[in-house]
Design a protein around this nucleic acid. Sequence first.
DNA 1: GTTAGGG
DNA 2: CCCTAAC
Length: 725
Amino acid sequence: MRVAPQVAVLEILGGMNLWDMVSQKRLDNGFGGYRLPPIPHFPKSAKRKRSARKRRDDEQLCAFDLLVEVAGKLSSESENSTLPPFCIIGRSKEVAKQDLLGNKEELKTEIPDLLSNTVLAPEIVVKKQVAYASNKLPQASKPEHSEPLCLRLKSKIYDTAAGGSVVSNSGIGIGCSASTDICRSGSIRKSSENRLELEAMDIYSLEDPMDLDVKPPAPASSDSSAEVPVSRDNPCSSSMPKHESGIEHIVHRDDDDNSSGCTHPNTITNKASRPTNCIGDHGERNFSASKYWKAAINLSKSTNSASDYAIFMAWLTSFDYMLLPDIQRKPFLHDKKTCYTRQRTQRSYFKRRKLFERCPVSASNRGFFRMKVSNTFKKDSNKLEAHDPRGTAIRANGVTSPKAEQSSYKSVKFSIKSFKIPELYIEIPETATVGSLKRAVMEAVTAILQGGLHVGVILQGKKVRDDNKTLCQFGISNGDALDSLGFTLEPTTTQMAQQLTSSDNSRFLCLDDAVQPLARIPPISLPIDRDPSDASPQPALTSCPKSDHDSVHSPTNTLSLDKTTENKLALVALPAMDVEALAVVPLRNPKRLEHAQRRIRRPFSVTEVEALVEAVEKLGTGRWRDVKLRAFDTAKHRTYVDLKDKWKTLVHTANISPQQRRGEPVPQELLDRVLSAQAYWSQQQAKLRIKEEPPLPLPPVLCSSDPNQQFSSSSSSSLLEPVGT
DNA sequence: GTTAGGG
DNA sequence: CCCTAAC
């Protein structure tokens, strides 16, 4: 019997709000490279167990954020372009499972952190990848040269500035840039003091950490940049090599790391004299992937930090592995000005975040989660420079800077919560090697990155396209509208599966005065649902599929159009198709990972509300499918459940005081109609129950002869094209 | 697959 | 917007 190789579909989730991911713990179980360390066993103390659990969670968050930040630094400090490629790959659940079956050897290596005063002392676990564990598959499909190895890096993160205390010991998987090639060579296994690693790679435990609540060291040194807290002397850090020489090697040795294990900072051994980077030792680096990353490097050179951070933050949160550059290639510590110091406290992310929001100015100095938004507010430019690696969805608290010499200038502080992450699907044969998978993912990612990402600004669900308007003109500088401010990542160009050619930096960039056209969306982009109800000055982007279906994209027109609309507020309905547009390969059988991903929130526009109201007026409240078909047939992102839910909230909204309402205000007239229709139809339903008589009770109040007219008030004609069937 | 309702 | 029971 011939067994057809199955196709494993990898789904790399995107589009998720980072904050949601973190707060909802959706990074658990391997998704996003996250693994839950086990909770230390405290049989007799529920309390301790609880606190341990909390600590673990906190640590995960910290570690996660560190990754994010590291990536951000990498991307922005790779000026010399000697930066080895680093990439992020995803993996299927199956592969992950197989991962655990292989032999494991552990290698030690060290990677100086890219953040000031912080050292990453990771362990790399090399696993023999059991790539073809499935017995069903013919062995012949196995490539002869070798089994792909899977690199896993268990990062142990120390904060030297904080006295070497363990900041994090997470299970985040980080790979090494050259993993594919290196592994194939097999050198990695011999290159360093091997140690058998028996524990599963996701097994971690922390000792009861030292008091991690100690306040971070105050910035003492005068010569340090105002922003950078200085590392204070402490037993541990003193033994750590300073990073003045660029690269230092630090090996973490925790020989008694076992299941009950402690990773005590004091076990850190400085072995700087002996670079043990397994990769470097053998000089077998083969950055075959580097070409792809030139794009990323160029990108980082030619664009501002906001986009850099955005990109890497986005990808980081989208993938399972991140490949870090080899430390021997380049120091990353030169830019002290922008260096961060990891906050020592292990307090929860949430707590710090709140703190930050409350004290946007000072607390941010050393806060790891500090948002480095330097939103200089210039006269005729509303350029934002968001440096937050954590992404977007900004929240701004209109904070006035007392320093502003020009009284007319007002600073706005943004707290970026997250970017919307583009979604990416990859399909690859099950018989493919992990290495090829990595390459496939990398190519896909690169294809997008090389095209550049454009940062979009969304205000109250609408895309702000006019780059020349000032923030205050949009009301961004104050008011509740700030809560509905967000950012998106959009592909600028996507030349799938194309060679990276570029020295042409002009293609990479975003968030600049001159927004690059969203040109050249790949032909493979999936059909995108347009929201016909979103009245928009951007016909090309919001056209109804019905009428303009094939013009998948001609964003260029649109954008050029933008530039001419300087005098008008260019609030444009969010096309909301960017995500789909990034799809690499149409997903065939998306076995949703774990909790699939939450759909992005798309507030109903007034136009949509009107359409909904009108449909419900005519059809009643119990026929949501019909309502959908009638008024939202072309809006694929609106399900009938959505419509039902929206109606529910509309009714609620109509019943509360205007002061209590949030979001884009719905005209009272519409709300009145909502109540009216709700009352009417609920009455009908009641009647129907009592006596199952009237199959089609003639509606309305006035027994209008035409039920369809009953609720159609003044502006009766729907803005939506009543879906012709 | 739809509806209804709680979360 | 998600999840699910109930149909």
